[in-house]
Design a binder for these strands. Structure first.
Lengths: 213, 213, 213, 213
DNA sequence: GATGAATGAGTGTTCATTCAT
DNA sequence: GATGAATGAACACTCATTCAT
């Protein structure tokens, strides 16, 4: 029922839809709920979006494009930049990268929830996500790891794809756990020590260094 | 459309619902679709389940109880049993455990998908899941890790909860990736080398052992 | 609001739709009006008809098929049969034919109204009408007239198609006038003297026979 | 989408509405379609017409008044005028009259279509049509025929009303057939030989003059 | 017990009409 | 005057649920 300042109806609807979709899922939400939440009449929604599905698509395309930009293009640059600070080692680079990335995720938690839920049920949107974000990200990550393997910083026997997916899984699940267990993300992930611990595990594992090596 | 043998209607409905829910989400599915898939009349559904929601609840309660049994109770026993084969080291125990666990997951992929999707939107079911599975599992895992820390097999500085969640995250995401990227899980996860690699990363990390140690 | 005996819901809906469509036109009618008129719930309509348009199509296809049978096939037979009563002259045959045809039209006036109104706006239905009724009827009529021309009963200079259309137009317009002017067709067309007069005009015209011949 | 010259908005809207109504029927048309067709904003329509129905009313009232003038008043004068060319016989007068009338109809085919369609569903408009056009026209026609009967030019037994309606029906149906069968009226009716044939049938009928008379 | 026809509240969507600019 | 964004009642259609058979 929040009155938005004029001209921004489309945004108000998008924001309302993000909120409602993330709470009730796409199919569990009603255009009338979205309208109420956006503070507009139900008919107004259809001046901005042809169908309900169109709202979802526009939301997800937006996220995907924003991710495609920040994750793929920008993180590449970041890698290279940090590289120049050559005394920062790989772990520190990854930690910094992760911290920054989690800030974005934290700021858009409902969007992330919608993304991971709805992508399962809308193959058209999943396709875009995979092509624009998953594959390019994986390429960047794999290239990075391969380079580090050549530099002797990462074990030669590590499979770059598996390592990448493991890392993303750790992070993703951390976010998911907090999201589902604590309902609200009171403890800021990006500032939690957990983040550092995850990267430590990724790099050094949990096993004690026995004298066996 | 599958005709079930007499008396098994409830099961036929459950199986049909699992299939349909996993493909279209709970709210995206229709009781008429479920009936058709189960080979029963729509009305029949409501002789076995008071409401549509009740089908979902019964499905998830079943999964949860099965998991509560196998994961929490049985895996504890397994830990202790393997323990006796004392020449099997920790990594091997975990790998065996994981392999066995993934077999179960693979056999119930649609159920897992429903679980992780719907639990977000049904707080009542989420509560049961967390209390019956998540917390007890975490307790077992943490206890195991703490013991191993005392035995000097796992680094003292490792946080048991974080390590557990990291591991679950790696595995969960592996499953998820295959599920979403390749649509069908042709490559058996439980037999893939990826599984071993994940456990290796968990225990030893990806970083090359420099002479720093 | 008329309660129909069980099993006949589809017919009740068709009848209700015929009534409502004929009073308000297809686009001016509401499925809820039709439901009310048929004495069923609105949802029931859609158990029998996929869409609102489907009701119209089924109605018109029914009329068209019934006309195709009675007008085209049966009237041909009637022509030939009456022919055998060879002392009945052409005018009497046509009058009898027309009288019988008008009875059918009178019994289905709302249907006729729907037919002539909606066929203008639904090209798919118009196509069926023209192909199944208009063209075959015209063929029969033209063949009849041509034969009569050869027999010296009809003027050689008469164009068969024009004559047919003129006759149909006279009759059609008579029906239309009564329909629109008197709202209800209290005076039975099929029994009115007007019918005979029309056929007289068709055959002998209105001009007085001057001695010019 | 046609931009109209300033000041002519009302006419632009009327013309657009005539086009759209004739293609989709009154209830099947949208004010937004009319606005687009007229090249004005949707709101503008409602500066010139209180309601959508008001557009239809104004269109039909216009037609009706124009017909009332041309058909009733002017054709009467024409009859009398032609009368003076006393060597033109009745058939020639009617043919000339019809030719001229059909030119008007051809130039306003969409209007005619709207008139005959919508008049069925709008009793208020039908009333005006009948009172201003149908009845007065009928009166003129009947008076003419009665006079011709007295002059011995038309058979005494002809019913003037029936004859008039028959004639109008022939013409009306000729127009309708072309309209519906050939979609576009490529062949000009007013110049087609069909017109003469119709008048010939009206006056002399189709029956061959046997020696029986 | 099993059925599936029937229901009607509820859904996404349309559209004539209003009104601030 | 003209606009077109905004409205919300009304629409065609869906679906979980009931119940007579």
């Amino acid at each position: 029922m929040v009155r938005k300042k004029q001209g921004d109806k489309e945004n108000a609807i998008i924001e309302a839809a993000v909120k409602v979709f993330s709470q009730k899922s796409y199919h569990g939400s009603t255009t009338s709920e979205i309208a109420k939440e956006a503070g507009v009449a139900e008919g107004t929604i259809f001046r901005y979006f042809r169908t309900k599905k169109d709202i979802l698509s526009k939301i997800l395309i937006k996220v995907i494009e924003s991710y495609a930009q920040t994750v793929v293009v920008d993180s590449l640059r970041e890698f290279l930049t940090n590289y120049k600070d050559s005394n920062a080692n790989e772990k520190e680079v990854i930690k910094a990268l992760l911290r920054e990335r989690l800030k974005v995720i934290e700021a858009n938690l409902p969007l992330v929830k919608i993304l991971f839920t709805e992508i399962q049920f809308h193959p058209d949107l999943r396709k875009v996500w995979v092509e624009k974000v998953v594959r390019p990200s994986m390429d960047v990550a794999v290239a990075y790891i391969e380079k580090k393997k050549k530099e002797g910083k990462i074990k030669a026997e590590v499979n770059a794809e598996v390592a990448t997916r493991s890392f993303v899984g750790m992070v993703f699940f951390m976010v998911l756990s907090k999201l589902m267990l604590y309902e609200k993300l009171d403890l800021s992930l990006s500032e939690s020590g957990e983040l550092d611990q995850i990267v430590d595990i990724l790099f050094e594992g949990i096993a004690a260094r026995t004298i066996k090596g």
